[in-house]
Amino acid sequence: MGNIIEFENVSFRYEADEEGQVLPLAVKNVTLGIEEGSFVAVLGHNGSGKSTFAKLTNAINIPESGKVTVNGLDTADENNTDEIRRTVGMVFQNPDNQIVATIVEDDVAFGPENLGVEPAEIRKRVDDALKAVNMYEFRNSEPYKLSGGQKQRVAIAGVIAMQTSCIVLDEPTAMLDPNGRKEVLATIKRLNRERAITVVLVTHFMDEAVEADRVVVIDNGEVYMDGTPREVFSRADELIAVGLDVPQATQLAKALNAEGIDIRTDILNEEECIRAVLELLKE
């Protein structure tokens, strides 16, 4: 399948502050493509430029140089903005600041209403989207009575109801408790698998990145690593060098390896780690 989002030599910097000081580039010479239907995690520590990267994908940020295209449409052309935002939906970090209506189903309907969809069709899409994120029974609730994870799932439903083919999530779990994080991550994975929605998950949690098909590590505005989770996390030293962690299981395997124990170092999660250790013990 082709690429849905295409970055060609993209650089971006934020506007100068009041003192007129020119800010450094937030994103530097990024060239990459997001394949349709894939699940890509974008990793980076705070201030690495990963959020800026996310906002370049749907024409919130317009590149200073280079080109971003969504399904072949240039984000720099204002006439394309509407079409691009119908293709790439976005979910932000703070669930409270992206819910518009006082009732869950009204909020999910907000996107399709803006697109001018027929009322009966909106109803169908809203019900379908709420079922897809397992929030159907909360359709008449007030958003402020929901937990963070539930609010974030409502926000995701709002994007699904617009029937975008790609969802970009900008640290959707950063403000959630562990349970909320699990709920949201499971929802994202399911949408990617069952509905073939392209997912770009911007995060700084390693255990979330492990779930993706592909991990792109961004540091200092540049693509630092790009590969499958196994490839990326087996290079633990390089990750630590740019201020990132590796999953605990990988860390453990590394430490054991350093002590001279012959264990694989491309372990990603606890289950694999347990299996590898058990095998070692059998020997």
């Binding site: 939906g89 992206q98 907000f110 996107g111 209403e113 001018g116």
Partner: peptide
């Protein structure tokens, strides 16, 4: 909050009242 909300609304194709439909008639 207002700033972020404006971004989020724009991302959901909000352009004011024109050509807008309503789910609940």
């Amino acid at each position: 909050r207002a700033y972020e909300l404006a971004f989020a609304m724009e991302c959901r194709c909000y352009t004011g009242g024109n050509n807008r439909t309503r789910m609940k008639q």
